[in-house]
């Protein structure tokens, strides 16, 4: 029975957001190998909003080379 709750929390323990700075000596990119594996795949079609709150789809970004960089205030 305990393994279920343990596996529940191991999921978060292994989540990259939470280990990103807990592995000394590794390059940040090396901690996210799942990102590099996306090369060659299609950008998924997902609804997001622009800074004014207007809904757009990531498919609307087609037509030119586009750079996407994830970030936040912290």
């Amino acid at each position: 029975m305990w393994y279920k709750i343990l596996s529940c929390f191991l999921t978060i323990a292994l989540h990259p957001d939470l280990v990103s700075a807990q592995v000394p000596g590794r390059q940040p990119s090396a901690q996210f190998p799942q990102v590099a594996s996306l090369v060659g795949k299609q950008l998924p079609d997902i609804n997001v909003v622009d800074a004014a709150g207007n809904q757009i789809s990531t498919s609307d970004l087609r037509g030119k080379y586009t750079v996407l960089v994830f970030g936040c205030l912290t």
Partner: peptide
Amino acid sequence: LGGAPNSQFVIDPRGKIISAAGWS
């Protein structure tokens, strides 16, 4: 797109991911 907090991607005009880095 992999769940990384500061990742970086280049998308071609057809919507294909042609470059991806786990950290910008």
